[in-house]
Amino acid sequence: MKRFYLIGFGALLGFDTLAQICFKFAGMHALPLQANLTWLLRLFSEPWVYGAIAGYIGAFFTWMSLLKHAPIGPAFAASHLEVVSGLLLSVPIFGEHISLAQGAGAVLIVAGIVCLARSESDADTPPAAA
């Protein structure tokens, strides 16, 4: 059962990360940013936006099947950790630089997500066991 969770959480993180990387590529290829139809056509004529949609669909179904079995707390945390994977992958893929403030900010955010996940796991008479 442990392995099921591990694969499930990994798949969720993978799909979310894939979606975010595709979002970034989609935006880059549709530049310059304009609030008009031309921008939309440029966006949807590149493959990246469809990769982002595929990532979202994969994440949605993984999330739904995880929630049937996995506790909500760890699932909640796993569904937000693409912040870290995206931040790390942005260095090799987009040549981004992680500043000290960003590293420290990421640590604080992850610590916060862990707290929120634990507060869900504690099952403090939740209004609905979603």
């Binding site: 975010q20 989609a26 995206g86 942005s90």
Partner: peptide, 23 residues
């Protein structure tokens, strides 16, 4: 659409970190 527009103007890492405020 707004998220793609936002990410096209900021680095991915920074965008994801800022987006955490949604939680």
């Amino acid at each position: 659409l707004a998220w793609i527009a936002f990410l096209s103007l900021v680095p991915l890492g920074r965008g994801l970190l800022l987006g955490s405020i949604n939680i």
